[in-house]
Design a protein around this nucleic acid. Structure first.
Lengths: 96, 96
DNA sequence: TCATCATTTCGATAGGTATAGAAATGACGA
DNA sequence: TCGTCATTTCTATACCTATCGAAATGATGA
């Protein structure tokens, strides 16, 4: 799959950096990235051992940072990594 | 210059992520990385507009995370980016 | 309709942290 | 020796945030 290029402005760059700073949130992101089919909140909750409210909070941070896309279908929220954003973040970091 | 490989354990990885989460601190790191001759605290202070105590605080965070090396010579502290650590961090991020 | 389930929102709390003023430290030059 | 300068340490403060219980929301199936 070819990813469209994504441009990170300073604000988004900072939001992403902050999002990654919490170990639990980074672990969430890792699971989201690895999982083939888009995982749901409950799925993450089981592996991370956090309360639903906490999962939801972290998920919102990841979404606000633009790192994940959340597709809400009925009861479920299917989460996917926005790889073009991730790639842009890595690129910017590597240009330090 | 060839960089020896550096291994990041989980704790250092988290410390680095936290260190990067503050915009001022990231800006400090950028200046340290760009500057040819190792800059001093005062040098950073002028470009970042922060109190000496605050610069010193951020610098300690960067040092604790292993991101920078501080060579203290007389009155001055010369700061350099530890590029092998930076490289290891980028590598780990890219393996998500 | 009603109970159940996934998720979100609200509200509270405990702990973390960016900031800087003031004082301490330690080196340097006069 | 003494004043100055770069840096650090101490301490306080204001703000931020990770966490979760409880309640709300909204969909699903019986």
């Amino acid at each position: 799959m070819v990813l469209r290029q994504h441009h990170l402005d300073d604000q988004q760059f900072t939001l992403i950096s902050k999002a990654l700073a919490d170990p639990k949130r980074f672990e969430m992101l890792q699971r989201i990235a690895h999982q083939g089919p888009a995982p749901t909140c409950t799925c993450l909750r089981e592996s991370l051992q956090l309360a639903p409210a906490t999962i939801s909070h972290h998920l919102k941070e990841l979404e606000t940072a633009g790192l994940v896309h959340i597709q809400r279908e009925g009861k479920f929220a299917h989460i996917t990594l926005r790889r073009e954003v991730w790639k842009a973040y890595l690129k910017r970091l590597s240009e330090i």
